[in-house]
Each structure stands twice: as structure tokens, then as C-alpha cells.
Design a protein around this nucleic acid. Structure first.
Length: 684
DNA sequence: CTTGCTCTAGTTAGG
DNA sequence: CTAGAGCAAG
């Protein structure tokens, strides 16, 4: 392998294969390159591809890694164990289910199921519904249970009054054992189990641990600053005394403390692995010097961190621009106008531009304006396509069609659109099915046999039963499953229900557009299978929904990116805007004013890291915008500049005030540009 | 069981 | 201001 493209510390990180290694990889320091080269190096030294495990946090990151390796080593890349902690966890559990104490075919609860479970448990325990003196935030309860599991706090320990600081801790501790029991009864695990159960069992079962240690000889962990306690434990157990472990991360980019990540894992790496070697990658190839000066100037204000800084490898560059607008509207107009100038006048490609913000809602205004200006955009973060209610509903129908024994999906389909089948009827069907060992759908087909059901309910259930039979008839007679799905969806009136729920015609068509997008994805999948002369394997489709979205629906080319700061991590653009650099937004006000439902207190240093992550996304030009006032909850509010702006080194930024007059000038320019464009667009 | 009114909260994400 | 959730009436 050619190592000449690497700098000295990068080369060391690639070659240092014995013992534990911590690579502190600053933003833009060529981290991915180190990981891929290291893997290739291991292979060249004779490691079996299947013995190399590289763990990451998202499927997307894992796929990108595999893609890069594919280019370097070809087919051998397919044998590497590259995946998320969770996906590798599933893989291990499927292979040795008895070792991990799960049934051969265990189910995995998604967040919706999990919430549903906790909701009913709250009710059963009298904390919800009539007579309850308090309404609990479901998410806060679920989060606590999740955090406990990941920190190996047993239900008994959680119930210890000494560790209960709020009412929420009490209620969560009360439900925790019942929740675990219920999971067991369902033969299912939740996402947390995919990691913490692995940790538990590897610790408790020496033979099992030996088996997996023998399989996985070389461990790599990416984004190590995001690992939690359970993930650390999995890594330790798998590494064993051999400690052939390389972790890569950046404590300055730790922004997931609120979901249980422990910066201590990376800060105290040498405590857990005393033999550890530490290599710092500080040379930054991404950004121009003023941007890095700002990044360094901000991040040095944090206390608990590894001492390091970003050293520019590029030259030149303009100072960072701090843009001050009078209000949120003006801020948005200025940004959108600037983007248009960049794209129209300076011929920058839209994909070179990104707009970053703290919370997903901030995208709306920009979105609108970009639409007005006819500039294409894509939105990262926020609610994922497959999490949207309409999409989930239609997907439930699809599952009823192709995997009719999937009770959860039957339940969901039965519920939407409303057809007069509520919780009572469902409970009766459930016990009927349970008693005879039937699936829920079979019980629905035999609704007539249930004497306790009302005539209305029976009619409704028979309607549903008929709907499904027709769909299945089309599907099984060799017709298109998606065609069958379409006819079911049309017949059941889901579209009307969506229209009815929406608050405007525009919103209705937006929501339905998501459904059409899903149909499109399903059709392409079906078509591809046909092209190969096979029957579509829907279980594969359901298993790779996210990838489908990435490949089909989310092409970045020709589009400006709008994203939350969190989702921006790991990405980069030539031109970056960061909106709302104000107290209350960044740092977010909830950090200063926590709630009793907050399981983890906010952390000002984490907010600073988030800002730092934003800054370091920019390659060439960076605009930090803020408004002096903003409409909040319908009322205008005065806003103060973010304290982080005061940390920028004076020599490396300039302030640009969007005065009223200039805003007018901007608009005047815009309308001139419009006129010009219109003339250009008209032939002759 | 569904509908419509009232109340409340309003960060960040992923498997 | 607005979306989602809970509650009381049809």
C-alpha cells in the first residue's frame, strides 16, 4: 500500500497495530483515510477480512466506509465486519441466540412500539388517564429506562430512593421491571438491548466471550466520543487481553451527551486501557485559516478536553462574516438572497452551500424563501421520511399484504383510517387470537365467531378482512404487490383521512406526496427484482429502508443542504451559513433552565462543541448570522448575541449589519435579477 | 368508538 | 402561534 499520501501521525496511526490505540482526529484531519488505510494494512499483514470489525454509529457511515474500501481492495471489502454497534449486535445475537438469552427469532421494538408499551404501562399503574394527578412526558420515561439499561443500572438499583432525584425517576423506576418483563414475554428486545445485552452476556459467559473474541481479532471504533457505557463495555470485552483495538474520535466534537454518550470514554481512554498509545491528528486539510482560527478560538474555552488545535494546511481566505439582522425574517431573507447571489452571480453550485441551525424548525423560513427563488434544496435531520405517520401507515398495509402474520402492522392498519375499531375491540380480538394460537389477522377474518363484538364492529372488521383478501388475491395471482397495495389504499380511503387531518390543502398534498414517494420506492424495488427475473424479497426491502431513501430520494447534486448542526457532523461544504447565533438558541435556553423531565442536565460546553462542529464544516467561506429580535410564540422578543460570538478572535472576522436600507437594496437587487432571469429564460 | 374542544409545550438522533 | 394529546360529549 502506498503510504506517501499520508502525513507522519496519520502513517503512525495506520501502522501501529499492536495494543490499544487512541487516534484523536481533529475535524478535517483525514480520519476516514486513516481508518481505511489501517484496515488495508491489517489485511496486507495477513489478517482475515472477517476478523476485522469496524464499528460506527450510523448505517450511512458504515456504508460509506465499505464503499471506500471497495474502491481500494475490491471484493474483500464485503467480508469485513463493518456496521453499527446495533447491527453487529443483531448479527451476534442471531448467530448465538441462546448465548444472549433471546429466542431464535426475536423481534426488535422500534421507538413507536416502545412508546406504546410504556404508555399502556403508565395507564396500568394509574399514572395516566383519569384520576392521575400528573401527566408525564412519555419520552422522559423511555429515556430514563434507556439510560439505566445502558449504564447497567438494574431495576432494583433504579428503585433505590437514594438515586431518585425527581418524580420522573420514581415513575420510571416503577415501570422499569414491568417493561423488561413485557419485552421478555413478547420475545423481543429494544434497541438498547442490542448493545447492553451483548455487554452483559459477554461479561457473564466466558465461553461465549471467548467464541466472539476468537472471531473478532481487530477492533476499530469510529466516532468514539459518542460511545456510551454499554458500548465501552462491549469494546472492552471483545478486545480482551489482546487489546487489539483502535478507537478514533474527537472529544471536541462530542455532542451527544444528552442521549447518554460519555466523553469520559475518550478523555480517560488510558484509564480503561493503560497500555494505550495516543496519536493526535491536528493538521487540517479542510478549511481556510480564518475559519480554523475561529474554531480554535471558540473551543479553547472548554475545560475538559484533550489539548490540541487545528493547524491549517491551506492558505488565504477571507475573514468569517458575522451577519446581524434586525429580526428573524430579515436574517432569512438575507441568507436566501446571498445564496441566490452565490448561485446566480458567482456561479457556485448549490451543493457547495449549506445552511446550519440548532433546531429543525428553523429550516422552515429558509425553505420557503429558497422555493420562492427557485433554488433546489435537501433537508437533513428532522423527521426521517420513514418516521412520518402517513408513510408508516401505508407501510403497515404493505406488511399486512406480504407478511400477514405481522400483528403489529395489522393493528396499525386496522387503526388507520378510523373504521370504528378501537382498543376494546382490539383487546377482544387479541385474546381470541391468543386462545387459539391464531394471528391477529386470522382473528379478524373470523370476527363473526366473536359473540361479544357489536354488529358495527363486525361489519367494520369484515370490511377490513375483505380489503385484505382482495389485496392478497391480486398479490398472489402474480400481480404487482405495489399495485395491490395501491388498490387497498384507494379502497380504504386513507387519502381522504390524510386530507381530513391536514390543516390546509397545501399540507395535505405535502403529506400525500410522502406517500407517493413511498409508492415510488416500492415500485422501483419491485421492478429491479423483476428485471432480475426474481420475486421481490420484501423482507430485504423492509430491512434496508434507510438506504433506499439515501439512494433514491436524496440526491445531493444541484441542491443546497439545510441541516441541523447535529446532523451536519462529519460533512463539509465550501460555503456554510450558521443561523441564529444567539443566546437562547445557541447555547439553547434549555441548558440554563432545565426541566424536571430532563434526565440529563444540559451542558454549556456541549453547546460550545456543537458550535465548533458547525464552524469546522466550512471549507472556504463561513457566515454566522443572528437577529436582534425574533418572533417567539407569536410575540416579538429581543435577542442577545451568542456568548460564543464573543469568543471569536477579532482579527479573523468582520461584522456585517443588515440595515433596513441594505435590506431594501438587497430586495431591489433581487427583483432586478428576477427580471434579468426572466428575460434570459424567454427564448428570442 | 369517534368527534371536536381545550390544554400545553415548544432541542438535538439513531439503531 | 401551532401541533399533538387528553377529555367530555354524541
Amino acid at each position: 500500500m502506498d503510504l506517501s499520501a499520508l502525513n507522519q501521525p496519520q502513517r503512525e496511526a495506520v501502522l501501529c497495530v499492536d495494543g490499544p490505540l487512541l487516534v484523536l482526529a481533529g475535524a478535517g484531519s483525514g480520519k476516514t483515510r486513516v481508518i481505511t488505510h489501517r484496515i488495508v494494512h491489517l489485511l496486507e499483514r495477513g489478517a482475515a477480512p472477517g476478523a476485522i470489525v469496524a464499528l460506527s454509529f450510523t448505517n450511512k457511515a458504515a456504508d460509506e466506509m465499505r464503499e471506500r474500501l471497495h474502491k481500494m481492495i475490491g471484493k474483500a471489502a464485503d467480508e469485513l465486519v463493518l456496521g453499527t454497534f446495533h447491527s453487529v449486535g443483531v448479527r451476534m445475537m442471531r448467530e448465538t441466540p441462546e448465548g444472549f438469552g433471546v429466542p431464535k427469532r426475536f423481534g426488535i421494538l422500534d421507538q413507536g412500539d416502545q412508546y406504546g408499551l410504556v404508555r399502556t404501562m403508565l395507564r396500568d399503574h394509574g399514572h395516566h388517564g383519569p384520576g392521575a394527578e400528573r401527566r408525564y412526558d412519555l419520552g422522559a420515561i423511555v429515556q430514563r429506562i434507556s439510560l439505566w439499561k445502558n449504564e447497567f443500572v438494574s431495576p432494583e438499583e433504579a428503585a433505590d430512593p437514594r438515586r431518585q432525584e425527581s418524580e420522573y425517576d420514581q415513575v420510571a423506576a416503577e415501570l422499569y421491571p414491568a417493561y423488561e418483563e413485557r419485552l421478555g414475554a413478547l420475545g423481543a428486545v429494544d434497541f438498547d438491548d442490542l448493545v447492553c445485552r451483548i455487554a452483559h452476556r459477554l461479561a457473564a459467559d466466558a465461553a461465549l466471550c471467548a467464541f466472539w473474541r476468537d472471531r473478532f481479532h481487530y477492533l476499530l471504533v469510529d466516532e468514539y466520543q459518542d460511545t456510551n457505557r454499554a458500548q465501552l463495555e462491549v469494546v472492552r470485552r471483545l478486545a480482551g487481553p489482546r487489546e487489539n483495538l483502535c478507537v478514533v474520535g474527537d472529544d471536541d466534537q462530542a455532542i451527544y451527551g444528552w442521549r447518554g454518550a460519555k466523553v469520559a470514554n475518550i478523555l480517560g481512554f488510558d484509564l480503561y486501557f493503560p497500555r494505550a498509545r495516543v496519536i493526535k491528528l491536528e493538521q487540517n486539510y479542510r478549511s481556510l485559516p480564518p475559519i480554523l482560527a475561529c474554531a480554535n478560538g471558540v473551543i479553547v474555552n472548554n475545560k475538559g478536553r484533550h489539548d490540541k488545535r487545528l493547524i491549517p494546511q491551506r492558505r488565504g481566505g477571507e475573514p468569517v462574516t458575522v451577519v446581524v439582522a434586525e429580526d428573524g425574517e430579515q436574517e432569512a431573507r438575507w441568507v436566501a438572497g446571498k445564496i441566490r447571489k452565490l448561485v446566480v452571480d458567482e456561479a457556485r453550485r448549490p451543493e457547495e452551500v449549506a445552511v446550519l441551525y440548532r433546531s429543525a424548525k428553523q429550516a422552515e423560513v429558509i425553505e420557503e424563501l429558497l422555493q420562492e427563488h427557485g433554488i433546489a434544496y435537501r433537508i437533513l435531520g428532522g423527521q426521517a421520511f420513514y418516521d412520518r405517520k402517513q408513510v408508516k401507515d401505508v407501510l403497515a398495509y404493505m406488511r399486512v399484504l406480504v407478511t400477514p402474520r405481522d400483528d403489529l402492522s395489522v393493528r396499525r392498519a386496522l387503526d388507520v383510517p378510523s373504521r370504528g375499531v378501537g382498543s376494546k375491540t382490539l383487546a377482544r380480538l387479541d385474546s381470541f387470537a391468543q386462545a387459539r394460537g391464531l394471528s391477529l389477522l386470522e382473528a379478524v377474518h373470523r370476527a363473526r365467531e366473536l359473540p361479544e363484538l357489536g354488529a358495527r364492529q363486525i361489519t367494520a372488521l369484515e370490511g377490513f378482512s375483505e380489503l385484505v383478501r382482495r389485496g392478497q388475491a391480486i398479490h398472489h395471482s402474480g400481480g404487482s404487490a405495489v399495485g395491490a397495495l395501491r388498490s387497498m389504499i384507494t379502497a380504504c380511503g386513507l387519502r381522504d383521512a390524510v386530507a381530513h387531518d391536514a390543516s390546509s390543502a397545501e399540507q395535505a398534498s405535502q403529506k400525500w406526496a410522502a406517500v407517493e414517494g413511498l409508492f415510488g420506492g416500492l415500485e422501483r424495488f419491485e421492478q429491479r427484482a423483476r428485471d432480475r427475473g426474481e420475486r421481490p424479497r420484501w423482507s430485504d426491502y423492509f430491512g434496508t429502508l434507510d438506504k433506499e431513501r439515501e439512494e433514491e430520494g436524496d440526491q445531493a447534486t444541484g441542491k443546497v443542504t439545510l441541516t441541523t448542526l447535529h446532523s451536519a457532523k462529519g460533512l463539509e461544504w465550501p460555503i456554510v451559513f450558521i443561523l441564529g447565533c444567539e443566546e437562547g438558541t445557541m447555547p439553547h435556553k434549555r441548558v440554563a433552565a432545565p426541566r424536571i423531565s430532563d434526565a440529563i442536565a444540559g451542558d454549556i460546553e456541549e453547546e460550545r462543541r456543537l458550535f465548533y462542529v458547525g464552524i469546522t464544516r466550512a471549507q472556504d467561506r463561513l457566515f454566522l448570522t443572528r437577529a436582534d429580535a425574533r418572533v417567539e410564540r407569536g410575540q416579538p422578543q429581543k435577542r442577545l448575541p451568542s456568548r460564543f460570538l464573543a469568543e471569536l478572535p477579532a482579527a479573523h472576522f468582520t461584522v456585517y449589519e443588515v440595515a433596513k436600507r441594505e435590506a431594501l437594496t438587497t430586495e431591489a437587487l433581487e427583483s432586478m435579477a428576477d427580471a434579468l432571469l426572466a428575460r434570459l429564460a424567454t427564448p428570442g
